[in-house]
Amino acid sequence: MYDYLIIGAGIIGLNIAKNLKERFPESKILVLEKEDEVAQHSSGRNSGVLHAGFYYSADSLKAKFTKEGNIALKEFVKSRGLKINECQKVVVATDDKEVEGLEELKRRGEANGVDLIWLDEDGLNELYPNIKTHKKALLCPSTATVNPKEVTKEFAKVIKDLGVELLLSCKYVSSSSNVVSTSLGDFQAKKVINCAGLYADNIARDFGFSKDYVIIPFKGIYLKDKNNVSHLETNVYPVPNLENPFLGVHYTLTVDGESKIGPTAIPALWRENYKGMDNFSLKEFSQILFYEAKLFLTNAFGFRSLAFSEVKKYSLSYLKGLAMKLTKQMNHDGFDSWSTPGIRAQLLNKNTLELVQDFVVESDENSVHVLNAVSPAFTSSIPFANWVVETHVLKNK
């Protein structure tokens, strides 16, 4: 009998395990992971950007945890001797309407306690001569990049050193009460904590949760300039559409000095639809197609135009063209290869047909289900895990 059984060894599951073991050193904790190593999905396939926390309205969980998470993850990375690129970030505008968007971001940043610096065109040109804006731009000094796979694997080392059991190649099958059946047998726990990412909603339904939600996967790919021929010096973002959770095509400078353009946000047709027909599931395909058809027909949150525009991003010239609106004479010849795809496990409210913007967790005395841990969940992982433990794991004891 385990005290806590955690399904999913992504960065959230690992941090919840770490938090619980540090609070209760004598507790028996088991983390199950279906892959043969950690960080095989969202935790290891994201951009590695440590966000600052100025996109989110002050009343959101994302606002609450992103600034604190940025600081905490930087401290962890530095204390463990991992790589970090403190390359900052610039958000630029292309017209007067987008300047209004910048002003809203500045207001949100101030409400969330995030340091943002106004730059006029001359000031931006002095710092970054190849970046273009209309009238003014926002500089965020606290944005940085790390290697997400390296960081997630380091958390796995930490929990094993603390005495948490990590069982790999162990796939969830079903549950009955608090007995979890897996491909490696049955395990019993006083409390089950579901951090299964792309499959969190399915597992939650086995426990009577996620009645209003379903996960819709979106595929993200970046176009890479491996040698940074472009001489990119910082992350460059457009003003986002704050009505949906995607940040638009931007430039990212990786921890290894590569530059990237992207990502796409292409509606995927099954949950692990990374490449070709790999991991194809007819059941998933049918379910996702049903909801995507519904979104397409109703054009909820502009899904129809989003789908068309995202598919066009498979064209290198189209994707480069979107990015080039943010720069002047930057050399784009090096952007010639695709990154490893990632899948965003985006929660959809089945009743309202809205993409859920904030983190969502459901729980009772027997189980906890992390249903929506989308970007910036990687950045927010340490304080978010602490909140899950305090608000859902311990309060429902």
Rank of each mutant, 00 (worst) to 15 (best):
T264M: 01
D278S: 14
V49W: 11
G53H: 12
S42M: 04
K191E: 08
V311A: 14
L5Q: 02
E126H: 05
S305Y: 03
P25N: 05
D36Y: 11
A9P: 03
K224F: 03
G69D: 04
D333N: 14
N349L: 14
N273G: 09
D212F: 02
M324E: 13
K312M: 05
L20T: 10
L105C: 09
S375A: 13
L73V: 11
D212A: 13
K320M: 10
A58N: 12
V368C: 13
S230L: 00
K226T: 08
G53S: 11
P376I: 12
V38F: 00
T379H: 03
S47E: 00
M330H: 06
N130Q: 15
D358I: 06
L124T: 09
F285T: 05
K191L: 06
Q40N: 07
L247D: 04
A200R: 08
L355S: 06
F187E: 04
I382V: 15
S181L: 08
S281M: 06
N331E: 12
E365Y: 07
F209D: 11
I12N: 12
L50R: 00
A52C: 04
K83S: 15
N372C: 03
S375Q: 12
P263Y: 03
K89G: 02
H392K: 13
Y318H: 15
G321D: 06
N70M: 07
L102G: 09
L348E: 10
N386L: 10
L348D: 09
Y56Q: 02
L119G: 10
N299E: 01
E362S: 00
V249W: 02
S169Q: 10
K325T: 07
Q40R: 14
A345N: 06
F209L: 05
D278C: 05
L223G: 00
D358Y: 11
Y274T: 10
L168D: 11
L394Y: 02
P25Y: 09
P25W: 08
A189S: 13
G69P: 01
G10H: 04
K226S: 11
V146E: 05
C195G: 07
N241V: 03
K28I: 04
L139M: 08
S43W: 00
P141I: 07
G321F: 05
H250W: 01
N244P: 01
V146L: 13
K153T: 02
I221K: 15
L138I: 14
L167T: 07
V249L: 04
K62F: 00
N70C: 07
V311H: 11
L306F: 02
D364G: 05
L50Y: 00
N228M: 01
P263D: 04
L61T: 12
C195P: 09
G197C: 02
H332F: 14
K171D: 11
G101H: 06
Y4A: 13
K149Y: 09
F246K: 05
K294D: 08
L162E: 01
R304H: 02
